[in-house]
Write a protein that binds this DNA or RNA. Structure first.
Length: 453
DNA sequence: CTTCAAGGCCAG
DNA sequence: CTGGCCTTGAAG
């Protein structure tokens, strides 16, 4: 109420743009499209388009072509299987949890918006101007996302769908899980809470002055752990763990300790994310097991970009590890890895990538619907699209002279992947030789990848 | 108990 | 056939 022109994030029906009346058959739609979809499916209706099957569907014209209207219903993600074959009334269906998460996601979006609003108002930026800029166009990606790929309306598919199966297995060793219950007592002694306390907003306030920064990107930036926080913890860690450790193997011991420390930071960072919290624990683990090496590689590369870490050295602050070139066993060498990493660092330097972009890219890596056996890939896909949309919005406004900037960032991502695979292979080779400390987070990550078929 | 997304009803 | 409003009933 404090701002008369408060932008209401009121939803519009993704089919026709009319006012939404609630969740119907998988997503927020208006009452009329709900009824239309129900009638079509219940009565097995087959429509035909008299034109080119690409009629525009809006509130005024939605009655004109039921064929295209139904196509659009399917395209935006309305679910045939949510129409009950037995016509039973009342109660709840299996989409209940999906609706709940979607609501939470939207709530998160609203909060980010309000926070952004407050920052901008406090920093004296006229509010009205950026509201008029349509700062929230990226949220449209939520509505236009195709949840289910249905090329043609198939009205016969009423049978049990089994689309979401409970494939969850809890057979692995779960160091992450123990972190989840706050009883982790592994080798890397890290106070996980202090590691991830939100950064002092003032230190990043200068970034929030830009009135056009998408709220989601600002949120990512504000909650991105910074170098000082990591360093504080590594100081403690190294004093405790590595004093007097200067034998020839200590270099690798340090690498593993550092990797483990970074992995802890990564897991904690993810866990603190409001978007990530919406997922079931099993999906959280699957995502982390799937992308840990990419996030690790990105962390190391980001350190060089953002904090100008020395190129030939690894990891954090004062605890840099010198790379030996005499790394002869089979598999990739640390030297190879650093060479390839360096190439990517160069690339990011040329791109002049900034903290906002790096913080957002981490979410693109984390929310990867390609991770295996996810319970709710649809939600993860949605988040990915949302993050991508916010990043696109950000790059467009921050760098209007480079309209293809997002494509370059995504290209970087596609090049990061093979590097992270190589790094994983490297660590796995060393793991096979018994060099990776048991019960470490790294140990768990390597097992999760290589034990699962 | 309340919620809210299903199905049902019926004037237009 | 449409779409606004009503009834239902499992989940929380």
């Amino acid at each position: 109420m404090e701002f008369g022109c408060e932008v209401d994030l009121e939803e519009l029906c993704p089919v026709c743009g009319d006012k939404v009346s609630g969740y119907h058959y998988g997503l927020l739609t208006c009452e009329s499209c709900k009824g239309f979809f129900k009638r079509t499916v219940q009565n097995n209706k087959i429509y035909a388009c008299v034109d080119k099957q690409q009629c525009r569907i809006d509130k005024a014209q939605r009655k004109r072509c039921p064929f295209c209207r139904f196509q659009k219903c399917l395209h935006v993600g309305m679910r045939i299987e949510a129409v009950r074959a037995d016509r039973m009334r009342g109660g709840r269906n299996k989409f209940g949890p999906t609706y709940k998460r979607d609501r939470a996601l939207k709530q998160q979006q609203r909060e980010a918006y309000i926070r952004a609003h407050r920052f901008r108002t406090e920093s004296g930026t006229p509010v009205a101007s950026w509201i008029q800029n349509g700062d929230f166009t990226f949220t449209e990606s939520l509505n236009t996302v195709t949840i289910q790929k249905l090329s043609t309306p198939s009205l016969q598919s009423f049978g049990p769908t089994g689309a979401i199966q409970n494939l969850c297995s809890s057979a692995s060793s779960w160091t992450i899980k123990s972190m989840y219950s706050n009883t982790y007592a592994g080798s890397a002694v890290v106070d996980a809470v202090t590691l991830m306390e939100p950064c002092d907003p003032c230190s990043k306030l200068r970034f929030t002055q830009d009135p056009r920064m998408p709220p989601l990107v600002m949120e990512f930036l504000l909650y991105d752990p910074d170098e000082l926080q990591l360093q504080r913890n590594t100081d403690v860690h190294f004093q405790q763990e590595l004093t007097g450790c200067c034998s020839y193997r200590s270099t690798f011991k340090q690498v593993y300790a550092m990797v483990d420390l970074l992995l802890h930071a990564i897991v904690e960072w993810a866990r603190m994310s409001a978007l990530f919290k919406q997922l079931q624990i099993s999906d959280q683990m699957k995502l982390l097991h799937h992308c840990w090496s990419e996030l690790l590689a990105l962390d190391i590369i980001s350190g060089q970009i953002l904090y100008d870490r020395q190129a030939s050295l690894l990891l954090i602050g004062d605890h840099e590890v010198e790379l030996p070139c005499t790394d002869h066993p089979p598999g990739p060498s640390l030297f190879d890895l650093s060479q390839r990493g360096q190439a990517l660092v160069e690339k990011l330097h040329i791109l002049k990538v900034d903290h906002q972009e790096l913080a957002s890219i981490k979410y693109l890596i984390l929310f990867n619907p390609a991770a295996k056996e996810l319970e709710d890939p649809g939600f993860i896909e949605k988040v990915k699209l949302q993050v991508g949309g916010a990043l696109l919005e950000y790059t467009r406004t921050a760098c209007p002279q480079l309209p293809n900037r997002l494509a370059h960032l995504l290209e970087f991502l596609s090049e990061l992947r093979p590097l992270s695979c190589l790094a994983e292979e490297y660590l796995y080779c060393r793991h096979l030789r018994g060099e990776v400390p048991c019960n470490s987070l790294l140990d768990e990550m390597l097992h999760a990848k290589h034990n699962c078929p």
